[in-house]
Computed example of a mutant assay.
Amino acid sequence: MFSLRLLTLADATQLADYHQRNAEFHRPWSPLMPPDYATPAFQEQRLRNYFRRHNWGEQYRFGIFTEAVLDQASVQLIGTITLAAVEREFFQNGRLGYSIDQQYQNRGVITANLQKVIHFSFVEQGLHRLEASIMPHNAASRRVLEKCGFEKIGYSPNYLQIQGVWRDHELYMRLAEE
């Protein structure tokens, strides 16, 4: 079993470890990161910056953790889901991003926990629309979005810079009513 919760400052070391373990696995889908990205100090500062956006209601960062079997020390961060770029007032929109530990891929972990974040977004935050973008060759991510009720709405050339190169992305969305 797995648990989903908002990240806290105490998770900086777990985040650093997660990024170290999965650096090569996540590389094809990630921007270029600074050399100290997978360090506790960098992740702690990144969390501090996140808390400002969280307090303004603009971003929510969740961690997916293994359940403790005997003690809390056995809990491990194995995935992240971010609800970012939340816009209120007339738009009520947010963008989703997610990643999973290589050891837990293709087990339905992201799909199940993304469903929880979708519920949080629509029911608890009152959002009307969620968006996600993926690179066209990311079949696993496409399956996750489709299982979670997202539909492809477009294609954006040179959308995000991944590993120093501007990459095309497919755009997906889901409305609260669906």
Rank of each mutant, 00 (worst) to 15 (best):
P34V: 15
A41C: 04
I110Y: 01
E58D: 12
L171H: 09
Y159R: 09
T8V: 08
A139N: 13
R143E: 10
E178Q: 07
G57V: 10
I162D: 01
N113P: 06
L96I: 15
N49W: 08
F90G: 13
N93T: 14
Y172G: 01
A41V: 14
K152Y: 00
H169L: 02
F122Q: 07
S133L: 02
H128L: 07
H169K: 03
Y50D: 12
Q115H: 10
L6D: 07
Q103C: 07
I134H: 05
R88P: 02
L7I: 15
W56Y: 12
Q163R: 09
H119F: 12
A38R: 05
N55K: 11
A38M: 04
L70F: 03
Q43L: 06
F62Q: 03
R46V: 09
H128K: 03
L127Q: 06
H128W: 01
E58G: 09
I81S: 00
Q125C: 04
S121G: 13
L32A: 08
C148A: 11
W29Y: 09
G97A: 15
A10G: 06
Q72K: 11
K147C: 09
R5I: 13
G97D: 08
L4N: 03
H119E: 14
D168S: 11
T8Q: 07
Q115C: 00
I162G: 10
P31G: 07
P35D: 14
G126N: 08
S30R: 14
E178A: 05
K147G: 03
W29T: 10
I153P: 00
Q59D: 15
V165G: 00
A68D: 06
G94F: 03
P31I: 08
F25A: 12
D11G: 06
P40R: 06
N158L: 10
